[in-house]
């Protein structure tokens, strides 16, 4: 079990202090930044990835 924990901790350190990015007075944790980037990526994917089962007809309104 201890080996699994130390492996996990090396891959994803959850017990050490978080990392922060700072630019003047703007400060954000890397974790929060990653989540925001993932949300934006998901939003764009939701608009462009075709929805399964949607009939595409050429030359007219769907």
């Amino acid at each position: 079990m201890a080996a699994i924990y130390s492996l996990f901790d090396a891959l994803l350190p959850l017990t050490s202090p978080g990392h922060y990015i700072q630019w003047h007075w703007i400060q954000i944790s890397v974790a929060n930044l990653i989540v925001i980037i993932l949300m934006i990526a998901t939003f764009i994917a939701a608009l462009v990835v075709p929805f399964p089962g949607r009939r595409r007809r050429r030359g007219g309104d769907e």
Binding site: F43, A45, A46, L47, V49, F51, G53, R54, R55, E62
Partner: peptide, 11 residues
Amino acid sequence: PSYVASWIYVF
């Protein structure tokens, strides 16, 4: 309606 067939409506 047909425009609902988009991933954005799944959220």
